[in-house]
């Protein structure tokens, strides 16, 4: 079943055409990694999937709902699409627990008891049950990112988007976060991950998209793409980072 359908997606910032013509279908439970050089449009692509960026042309459907339509209930659709940011973006004035239960209570109307119970489960899952009453600024980067993942999961999303979730972390923190993401993938979450972690892409993803200058230049299952890149631009990109 197709979870995300992207057809001829175009995105410009004024004169700057960032996404030129992107089409891709992502199936339920599929894990797709997006790689590409800085400025190639990876984040912009991801942000078009939950309309954090207004889409210039083409169509994006999430679980059958066209999110580009004017009358689409974007808040409702976003509840189904969790997003994890490079800079965590936790709410600094709220405790870890409050960060997690806010959206379930306010957007979904979940009762406080149910939201807290769910949050405790999620904190246990990401290995942070003892941090419920801490404030974000007292946490390490790796802990912050795991809270951010728990916060997104608290909405029971159908899809999780990750924008370089480990790029702002100290090297020794990266493993904990990738471990949580791997577990999520194993549980069957549909995931789109912008990453520079080629090990993760190789081990966890079903498919890798290489984006360059606003186009998907090459896509393949990870082993094939990494060991046998067909396109010359993929080859030159991989030779620089591997």
């Amino acid at each position: 079943m197709t979870m995300i359908e992207v057809k001829n997606l175009k995105k410009s910032f004024g004169q700057l055409e960032v996404l030129k013509d992107i089409s891709v279908d992502i199936k339920e439970s599929e894990v797709v990694c997006v790689i590409g050089a800085s400025g190639s449009g990876k984040s912009t692509f991801l942000r078009c999937l939950n309309r954090l960026e207004d889409i210039t042309g083409g169509r994006v459907s999430i679980d059958g709902d066209d999110i580009t339509e004017k009358k689409a209930d974007i808040n409702k659709i976003r509840q189904e699409v969790g997003m994890v940011f490079q800079q965590f973006n936790l709410f600094p004035h709220k405790t870890v627990m409050e960060n997690i239960i806010l959206a379930p209570m306010k957007a979904r109307g979940t009762s406080k008891e149910a939201a807290v119970k769910k949050a405790q489960e999620l904190l246990a899952k990401v290995g942070l049950n003892d941090k419920a009453d801490s404030y974000p600024n007292s946490l390490s980067g790796g802990q912050k990112q795991r809270v951010a993942i728990a916060r997104a999961l608290a909405m029971n999303p159908k899809i999780m988007l990750f924008d370089e979730p480990t790029s702002a972390l100290d090297p020794e923190m990266v493993g904990d976060v990738l471990e949580v993401m791997k577990q999520l993938a194993d549980e069957g979450m549909t995931m789109v991950v912008v990453t520079h972690e080629m090990g993760f892409a190789r081990e966890v993803s079903d498919r890798v998209l290489f984006i360059d200058e606003g186009l998907i230049v090459e896509e393949n299952e990870p082993n094939e793409l990494f060991s046998n890149p067909r396109h010359e631009r993929t080859q030159s990109f991989l030779s620089k980072i591997l």
């Binding site: 954090l52 808040n75 509840q79 940011f85 709410f91 959206a103 957007a107």
Partner: peptide, 20 residues
């Protein structure tokens, strides 16, 4: 990033203003 996180969770613009 604060607004983006709030909106990505499905909070409305008004809820984002009020709570975040």
């Amino acid at each position: 990033g604060q607004t983006e996180a709030a909106r990505s969770l499905g909070l409305t613009g008004t809820q984002n203003m009020r709570y975040i």
